[in-house]
Simulated scan of single mutants.
Amino acid sequence: MQQEQKSLLGPQWVNLNMQDADVWLLQSWLKAETADKLLKHFIERLAWSQPNIRMFGKSVPVPRLQAWYGDADASYAYSGIKMVPLAWEKKLLELKRYCEQTCDTPFNSVLANLYRHGQDSMGMHADNEPELGEQPVIASVSLGASRNFDFKHLSTGEKRRVVLHHGSLLIMRGSTQTFWHHGISKTKRVDTERVNFTFRYVHGSSN
């Protein structure tokens, strides 16, 4: 199965070879000039906000800015946040379609995250909400500052780290969300902005 998927993606892709997972990375998915323009555009044009989430019984602001875009029926919920999709912004829709072509997978929504500096982060988690299905395909596009992307196996405790650079595309599929958590930790080594998009397909709406 992995050989078939490698053929689909092309020889330039790197398979992270993780147990109980199917994860592929292409660092130069977008040309540098295109990535530069998109980074500036999305920082300026998307409707960024900083909602609160429930953690240990308390309401706290997420440690980054974010926005949820998608088809009208692609509502989503996590950590006590009900995400009602904003209508697709033009260039974001173009990026989605390019991502769909690369992944040979349809997407109807995207979580956009703006990491303003190294102290903005994403806690360890899995994209395993029921509305994503049993084996969701998550396509993660990175623009801006390079950041460490950490994985941890839920049973063995194995850890993996990959650096996601400007213009890269990471694809997680198969059983990845069942067996692994992933996240972005804080760092003092980064003081510039990073925008990340995780495209996905929501089956129905969350109540």
Results as ranks from 00 to 15, higher is better:
G57S: 01
G123H: 03
D71A: 14
P63I: 03
A67S: 10
A112P: 01
H41Y: 15
A77K: 11
A67T: 01
M122K: 00
L93S: 11
A32C: 13
C99Y: 02
R97D: 05
I81Y: 04
A72Y: 09
S109G: 09
D73V: 08
T105Q: 13
A87H: 14
K31Y: 02
N52F: 07
L93E: 14
K37Q: 14
Y69M: 01
S79Y: 05
A67R: 07
S79E: 00
R54N: 12
S75H: 10
N113E: 09
A77W: 03
Q50I: 10
Y98L: 14
L114E: 06
K40Q: 15
S109K: 02
K91L: 15
K31P: 09
G118P: 03
W88P: 06
Q27H: 15
M83N: 06
H117I: 00
H41V: 01
R45M: 09
P63T: 06
I43G: 02
D71Q: 11
L93V: 00
S49Y: 08
N52R: 13
C99I: 11
A47P: 07
K40I: 14
M122F: 10
L93G: 07
Q101N: 14
P61E: 06
E89D: 15
Q27I: 15
P106Q: 12
R45W: 04
L86H: 15
K82S: 12
M83C: 09
A87V: 14
V62D: 00
G57K: 03
L39C: 07
V110E: 08
Q27P: 12
S109T: 07
Q50G: 04
T102M: 13
E94K: 10
A112L: 10
S75F: 04
S109H: 04
Y69S: 01
R45Q: 14
N113Q: 11
S49M: 04
M83Y: 15
R54G: 08
P61R: 06
S121T: 10
W88C: 06
P51K: 03
Y78P: 09
M124C: 06
P51I: 08
G70N: 04
M83G: 03
M55Y: 05
H117E: 10
Q27V: 14
L46N: 05
P61H: 05
N108Y: 05
D73P: 05
G118I: 05
V60T: 04
E44Y: 05
D120E: 09
Q101M: 14
Y115L: 07
E94W: 04
Q66W: 00
A112S: 12
L114C: 09
D73K: 12
L86T: 09
K82A: 13
K58M: 03
L39W: 03
L95Y: 08
A74N: 02
D73F: 03
P106Y: 06
W68D: 00
M124N: 08
R64W: 06
S121P: 09
V62A: 07
K91W: 13
A112T: 05
W29F: 02
K37D: 10
W88R: 07
P106E: 10
D73Y: 09
A47L: 13
